[in-house]
């Protein structure tokens, strides 16, 4: 396997979808090619970082408004459903 072959199959490998028949070749190349091994490793770290890190924090004023708007809408809906016996 060549470096460019490996890069083409990178997604499948990282996602665990790689054809088992090719996987061995892939890992053999990785074991002998430091640049490719580093690329695979840094792609994994990149994905993990974005998955784990909440990059954007919900603004507090918005959060308060959201809850207020939802509660009001809920009350409106309840008012139109007087038969809802399970209503608290």
């Amino acid at each position: 396997m060549k470096c460019e072959d490996l890069l083409r199959m990178l997604n499948d490998y990282v996602d665990g979808d790689i054809d088992p028949a090719v996987c061995e070749d892939f890992e053999e190349h990785l074991a002998g090619c430091n640049p490719c091994a580093l690329v695979v490793d840094s792609i994994r770290k990149t994905i993990t970082l974005y998955k784990g890190e909440e990059v954007y924090e919900i603004p507090l004023p918005f959060r308060e408004r959201l809850h207020r708007v939802l509660r009001e809408r809920w009350k409106e809906l309840q008012a139109h459903r007087p038969c809802n016996s399970a209503s608290p």
């Binding site: 909440e54 990059v55 954007y56 919900i58």
Partner: peptide, 25 residues
Amino acid sequence: KSGDYEAFEQLVSRHERRLYALAMK
């Protein structure tokens, strides 16, 4: 579903951060 708003609000509180981040992205 059976009319408990506190339950719904709890769902909102649980998911609003993640969903806001998703929307921002």
